[in-house]
Amino acid sequence: MIRLLVVDDHPVVRAGIVGLLADADDLDVVGEAADGAAATALARELRPDVVLMDLRMPGTDGVAATGEVLAAVPTAHVVVLTTYETDADILRAVEAGATGYLLKDTTREALLDGVRAAARGETVLAPSVARRLVSQVRGPHDRLTERELEVLGAVARGLSNAQVGAELFITEATVKTHLLRVFAKLGVDDRAHAVMVAVRRGLLRADHGG
C-alpha cells in the first residue's frame, strides 16, 4: 500500500485530488496539508511514501517544502502537482529533490500512474514538461555528457537513484537532475525508454553494461 500525503493551499483543489485517488486499491491518502510548513510536520509524523506537492503556496512554497520534507523523511518521494510549467519552476523543483513534475490538468489514470512510478523511485514528467525540456536542449547541446552516461549506465543495471548516487558519490537530487536532462535530450519521459533509446543509438551496450 502506497502512503500518500496531499499538499495544496486550495481546499477545493485538495479535496478534488483526494477524491480522484481515494478509491485506488493500492493507495492510502494518510494526510492533507494546506502549506509547506504543515506538509513537513505531517510528513515527519506520517512517513508517507509519496507527497503530491503544490508549487506555489503562501509561506513555505512547494520547492522549499520539498527540500524540508526530504530532509525529514529521506525515503519519501515528492511529485510536484501544479498549473505552472516554466523552465525555472521545473528545474528548481527537481534540484530540490522532486521525483516528478505533473500538471493539474492531468487525467486520473496518469496521476495514478505517476504516483505509483514515484513510489518505485522513478522520475515522472508530464508530457508537456518533457517537450519543454526537449525543445530547450535540442541542437548542438543534445549529446549526453560523460556524467549523464554514467548515471544512465547505472540505471540500466537496475540501480535505484539512491544507489546510483552512492556509486557515483553524488546526491540523489543530483542523480534526478541528470536523469531529467537525459530524458529531455533523448526525447523520452521515463527510465526504461531512456535506456532503450540509448542502446538503439549506440550510447549504451545492449547488455546494459554502460
Results as ranks from 00 to 15, higher is better:
1 M>Y: 07
32 E>G: 06
19 G>P: 01
142 D>L: 15
154 A>C: 12
110 A>F: 15
34 A>S: 15
101 Y>V: 14
170 I>P: 12
54 D>Q: 05
158 G>W: 07
37 A>S: 13
61 D>G: 10
56 R>C: 10
191 R>M: 01
99 T>Y: 05
87 D>Y: 12
187 G>L: 04
64 A>L: 12
120 R>T: 09
87 D>P: 01
33 A>Q: 15
136 Q>C: 08
202 G>S: 04
82 T>C: 08
5 L>S: 09
150 E>I: 06
61 D>M: 00
19 G>F: 01
189 D>G: 15
37 A>N: 04
86 T>S: 15
61 D>P: 01
101 Y>W: 14
37 A>C: 02
195 V>H: 03
135 S>C: 06
16 G>W: 00
54 D>P: 07
179 L>H: 03
63 V>F: 05
84 Y>E: 14
160 S>C: 08
119 A>K: 13
177 T>E: 06
73 V>H: 10
133 L>Q: 07
116 R>M: 09
3 R>S: 11
76 A>W: 08
42 L>M: 12
176 K>D: 11
128 S>V: 13
58 P>R: 11
111 L>G: 03
174 T>M: 10
47 R>K: 14
201 R>N: 06
35 D>A: 04
24 A>Y: 03
2 I>F: 12
122 E>Y: 14
105 D>V: 08
57 M>Q: 00
138 R>Y: 13
181 R>T: 07
126 A>L: 01
70 L>F: 12
83 T>A: 14
136 Q>W: 15
20 L>G: 03
127 P>R: 01
108 R>N: 11
107 T>A: 13
17 I>M: 06
105 D>F: 07
170 I>W: 02
178 H>G: 06
163 Q>H: 00
156 A>C: 02
102 L>Y: 12
202 G>C: 03
105 D>L: 09
59 G>N: 05
109 E>W: 04
123 T>V: 15
81 L>H: 09
68 E>L: 05
8 D>Y: 02
12 V>N: 08
164 V>F: 00
32 E>D: 02
51 V>L: 06
43 A>P: 00
20 L>F: 04
172 E>H: 12
127 P>V: 04
14 R>K: 12
130 A>T: 03
23 D>W: 14
92 R>A: 15
157 R>Y: 03
73 V>W: 06
69 V>C: 05
50 V>L: 05
29 V>Y: 06
210 G>E: 11
103 L>N: 11
42 L>C: 03
139 G>R: 10
66 T>P: 13
87 D>N: 09
92 R>Y: 12
165 G>I: 03
188 V>D: 00
4 L>Q: 14
44 R>T: 13
187 G>Q: 07
77 H>K: 13
151 V>D: 09
108 R>H: 05
172 E>G: 14
154 A>W: 06
184 A>R: 01
106 T>N: 04
20 L>Q: 07
111 L>Q: 09
102 L>P: 10
184 A>I: 02
194 A>L: 02
128 S>Y: 07
77 H>W: 01
206 A>F: 05
55 L>W: 03
198 A>F: 01
94 V>Q: 11
109 E>L: 14
21 L>Q: 14
63 V>P: 02
202 G>T: 00
186 L>R: 08
123 T>N: 12
175 V>H: 13
12 V>T: 10
159 L>E: 02
188 V>I: 02
78 V>L: 14
158 G>E: 04
180 L>Y: 05
161 N>H: 13
48 P>A: 02
65 A>N: 06
169 F>K: 01
152 L>G: 04
136 Q>R: 12
204 L>T: 08
129 V>L: 07
